[in-house]
């Protein structure tokens, strides 16, 4: 019986096509990797832009220090520390300060007692 088998050896054209496709694949993967790295680098640009946005707003403000805010001075003088600007008064401790963790139940009791007292 006749058995037909392909001969070994390849032509120049076949060699170049074979190596060519391997090289092309490597280049393709490299390009994809480059695109990936570019996207990675650009991926948090929005954070910088938002940060720059806030700093620009800050620069455009006429008053740039908290203690110079007229309404802050007003709330201390009229409400939190009548007559003066004095943080950490009893009133500001009650309204503006809190406690953490295991001290919270005690704080809630205090605040509720205050509520009943006020009512």
């Amino acid at each position: 019986m006749n058995i037909f088998v392909e001969r070994g050896g390849i032509t120049r054209r076949q060699f170049f096509k074979g190596t060519g496709i391997i090289a092309a694949t490597a280049v393709f993967a490299g390009i994809l990797g480059k695109i990936g790295i570019d996207i990675f680098k650009a991926s948090d640009k929005y954070i910088e832009k938002r940060i720059a946005g806030l700093y620009t707003l800050d620069e455009r403000m006429t008053i740039r220090k908290s203690h110079e805010n007229p309404e802050i001075i007003q709330i201390y003088k009229e409400f939190l520390s009548p007559g003066e600007v004095k943080p950490l008064t009893e009133k500001s401790h009650h309204l503006l300060h809190t406690k953490y963790g295991s001290e919270i139940p005690e704080l809630i009791k205090e605040l509720e007692a205050h509520r009943h007292h006020a009512a």
Partner: peptide, 17 residues
Amino acid sequence: YVLFNFEKFAKFIDTIT
């Protein structure tokens, strides 16, 4: 396969392209 049978691979690529 491609590394050990480069000739076959090259012929295959030539044919299908």
